[in-house]
Design a binder for these strands. Structure first.
Lengths: 338, 338
DNA sequence: GATTGGCACTCGGACACGGCGAGTGCCAGC
DNA sequence: GCTGGCACTCGCCGTGTCCGAGTGCCAATC
């Protein structure tokens, strides 16, 4: 096990490197932190830390920089979550309070998070499966054409066209709408499949085909759109990445454009408190030099979706984690109110 | 006026520079294009072109590169719109045909355009004011709470919560819904304000307040969301911008994150055929080294929104214009079918 | 008069050299 | 176990040099 002081040295290295973006040497370390020991001692400690794989030298005769493993230890053991300052909190609240609908909430959140952390922000729309149904609406657009609209308790709305196998009268539409709502309104999306499975049988034979079509469209919507939508912002912050730009930034931008990748990324963030994935811990190789800080948010006690930021492994973890957590909480409140 | 050959020299310079991304000299020009004259003559022509402001030298003793004015002349007089190859056309059609709803159409379009042009693509959602109303739905969520849903002929759906000043009975809701639809269904959004203005008077006094509230929410939605939504993709292509990255790419990314800027950008594209804005012709200074190629698209003969790409001034104009035009046409078709 | 070949000149980019200094590892002494 | 000292390494930066692409100008040619 590493001694207390060695951990302290690692913490100092991480902090300095995050601040200066330059490899940090033993002398500079002792000057900027009062470790109570001489550079020579620090050098010995550094040699051990390097041996253990927590830090590395870019080249001989250069200072040390933390490795992914070093950051991991830092995040797990050495750093807390830095709470935001009261003005920051007020700013968040003010900024989010002005939102008029769900799109607006999500849009504002992503901008806020990007600004606060100066990194790339990712916000997932509230998931359908973990939401509850507020209302199902069925509109007859043409004799054999319906529109299905789903409204969730988080304010999310999904719509789908349904082409019916047979004309479907206005009264049948009203009937189906009423029965559907009495079955599923107020229930969780995840429970919907069971709740509606017996519905077709209670209709006239001639209408059963259409009812089944509507139901399968409904279920399809739940599956397809389950986790699908997310929004990203603050990509301009990528330009602060490093000096060696093009090579670093390219794969990151590409990864961020792939919704699938992002969804997987957030999907991997399973820790209910907060998940931090550092460098190579991310499966996608374009993101091997980035870290992801993500957390779930929700209107109640349960998470309905996730949000987070993507930034260089060399990031201010305590500050970023604080901002992400705070934003998630406020968004949860806003959703609960609406 | 410039002689025929000088125009030819300019065209050659633009083509070579776009291809190689390097200043082009007189000797290389004569080697790659059979202009039928010697380098010396080309040099004279270049001197004239520079005099007139169509080309410039980055430094003395370097080759020439086109100026914004040079590109302008190239686009206006020297270049056509390059039609896409049949395989490309087929690819577009296949790719867009799989779309299930409007979000999907727009999402696919933006990816397609980015891929095809290898630049940043911007697609605006069909505007409300230029669409027609397919249906207005009114749902009673609570005694004094309604949800208003607007559906357009382009498949776009907008929803808003309405808090009523007084409880509003189910029959009143049905009544208002029916009257609203008979008034506005099938009409253009732009005409809605007039069409509904007398509506409150035909209701019981006790309901008038609510009716007015609903109507004002409706009108508000039209105004607020009019042109608002757009989607952007292919930012990873920015990395192909130039060697001097950080400085160039930063302001562009920042500009692209501002919806307002983008909307203004597309708003300036007024030419019904196709608008090309080159370098400093763009008002936003972050985009001074980019060109924007934009065109309207629509389900019928009239444009309901715009789409386009943003790329370096040094872009393949004929190819880009061809791709943008082709995509706009196909999207128009898709919208007309749905 | 336009075009051409020739020529001197300019200047940026690539490369080699050398000094500087930060940082290291090791060791002997406390 | 900590410390100061010391020799060593090596990347960075500034300088100097060379090379060549490209230019402008001019006199000769068609």
């Amino acid at each position: 096990m590493l001694s207390e002081r060695r951990l302290e040295v690692l913490r100092a290295i991480v902090q300095d490197y995050v601040g200066t973006e330059e490899p940090v040497g033993s002398k500079a370390l002792t000057e900027r932190h009062n470790l109570g020991v001489s550079p020579a001692t620090v050098r010995n400690d550094m040699a051990v830390l390097e041996e253990e794989g927590f830090i590395a030298q870019p080249h001989t005769s250069a200072g040390r920089i933390p490795t992914d493993k070093g950051y991991r230890l830092f995040v797990d053991k050495l750093a807390g979550v830095k709470p935001l300052s009261p003005p920051e909190r007020r700013a968040i609240q003010n900024f989010l309070d002005g939102a008029v609908d769900l799109d607006d909430v999500v849009g504002r959140t992503v901008r806020l998070l990007a600004q606060l952390t100066r990194q790339v922000a990712v916000v997932q729309y509230p998931s359908l499966t973990r939401s509850t149904v507020r209302h199902v609406e069925l509109l007859s657009l043409a004799p054999a054409r319906l529109m299905l609209v789903l409204i969730t308790d988080t304010g999310r709305v999904e719509q789908r066209m349904v082409d019916c196998p047979a004309p479907f009268g206005e009264t049948s539409v009203a009937d189906l709408r009423a029965r559907l709502n009495s079955q599923v309104a107020g229930r969780r999306f995840a429970d919907v499949p069971q709740l509606v499975q017996d519905l077709p049988e209670s209709f006239d034979p001639e209408d059963r085909g259409t009812v089944s079509t509507v139901l399968s469209t409904l279920l399809e919507t739940l599956v397809e759109e389950t986790e699908e939508r997310l929004v990203i912002g603050g990509t301009a912050n990528l330009t602060r990445f490093g000096h060696d730009f093009p090579l670093t930034i390219r794969p990151v931008l590409e990864a961020l454009e792939e919704q699938v990748v992002l969804l997987k990324l957030l999907g991997e963030a399973t820790d209910p408190a907060m998940t931090v994935r550092i460098g190579h811990e991310n499966a996608h190789e374009g993101l091997n030099s980035t870290s992801v800080v993500a957390v779930g948010y929700g209107s109640g006690d349960e998470a309905v979706a996730k949000l987070g930021v993507v930034g260089p492994t060399r990031m201010d973890y305590p500050g970023t984690m604080g901002a992400v957590r705070a934003v998630a909480r406020y968004v949860g409140q806003i959703l609960a109110e609406s």
